[in-house]
């Protein structure tokens, strides 16, 4: 992702319980400042003049207490601690509960080029919302050349070389009532270090597919709105590859292959492609089998366990018969 600036934050189209209700009241020239971390800081201690371990790169949140303290600073006339605050590279200051600092504060911010924003939210609610928002935006991310679909509620990332049939497979899955997240280029983000979320690329250009011989098609217009999703957690990866007779494909399914996406291990299946193999049905089955595994039913392992039990009991019976 390119730099995320304060202006980008103001531009975000957030609704309901995500809305931040921000507006800028001073320091507009600082709106190009980048926000590069999701943490917040309450600058109470800093305002008293204590600047050791001051979190200068964080968003500075002012609420009732800080606002009252600023009034005292104004009366005392010693504004050095505020001056010092603005000497740090802080991305922006925000005043909660629609509080507004004195003009002297806004002038200092203007001079230092630090944006001052206000919000109608109380500080606790604002903190929760902005950490969630910045966490989503600043999450570790990468783009992958792949197709992402939702099959029976499972997020499936289909990978493979160009021309192996990823889009055609996705098309057949759409026809069977599953949903497309993104074709050809999927944005992957890692949340909380363990959830990988796949996004369609862009609102304007999303949910189009390229099918060789047809060109670009609009999926939501052809298959309807029920056939698309904007985002979905990646729960399994399918690698489509040309059938390679020298390679050993998994015949039992008792060992689990994983692939690493942004540090998270995701169950992975290498599916060989060859004329006559119905790949969409295989992916559907893999998705259902994976759901069973999540519910604790591991067919390959249970099968093997039952087999071992049967062999053991037969063995015991045989010993009995041999001896008597």
């Amino acid at each position: 992702m390119d730099k995320f600036t304060v202006l980008d934050l103001l531009d975000l189209d957030l609704h309901d319980y995500n809305a931040l209700h921000l507006s800028c009241i001073a320091g507009r020239k600082g709106l190009v400042k980048t926000i590069d971390r999701m943490d917040l800081n309450r600058p109470g201690l800093a305002l008293t003049g204590f600047y050791k371990t001051f979190a200068a790169h964080r968003v500075q949140v002012f609420s009732l207490a800080e606002h009252e303290y600023l009034k005292e600073i104004e009366q005392s006339g010693d504004r050095s601690s505020v001056q010092q605050l603005f000497s740090y590279p802080i991305p922006f200051c925000v005043f909660c509960r629609n509080l507004k600092p004195g003009d002297w504060f806004l002038e200092m911010a203007e001079k230092a080029g630090v944006p001052v924003l206000t919000t109608s939210l109380p500080s606790s609610e604002f903190s929760v919302r902005i950490i969630r928002t910045l966490g989503d935006i600043l999450a570790p991310q990468e783009k992958q050349h792949a197709v992402m679909v939702e099959v029976f509620g499972m997020g499936v990332l289909i990978k493979g070389e160009s021309g192996v049939g990823k889009s055609e497979t996705a098309l057949e899955l759409l026809e069977r009532g599953h949903r497309l997240v993104s074709d050809d280029s999927v944005l992957l983000k890692c949340f909380s270090g363990k959830i990988i979320m796949g996004f369609s690329d862009d609102r304007v250009l999303s949910h189009h597919m390229e099918i060789r011989g047809l060109g670009i098609i609009n999926v939501s217009q052809i298959f309807g709105v029920r056939s698309i999703r904007d985002k979905k957690q990646v729960q399994m990866v399918i690698n489509l590859e040309e059938w390679d007779s020298s390679k050993n494909y998994d015949r039992l399914g008792t060992t689990e292959q994983k692939s690493d996406i942004l540090g998270v291990q995701i169950p992975t299946f290498d599916i060989p492609v060859k004329p006559g193999r119905n790949i969409p049905v295989i992916i559907e089955t893999a998705a259902l089998n994976e759901r069973l595994k999540q519910k604790g039913h591991y067919a390959a392992k249970e099968f093997n366990k039952n087999l071992i039990q049967m062999l053991e009991s037969e063995n015991a019976r045989k010993m009995y018969q041999d001896n008597y």
């Binding site: 862009d202 597919m209 670009i216």
Partner: peptide
């Protein structure tokens, strides 16, 4: 920061 496979038309367009 975006890296796109040049054989993917949707990738290049988006």
């Amino acid at each position: 920061s975006e890296k796109i496979n040049a054989k993917s038309i949707m990738g290049i367009l988006t």
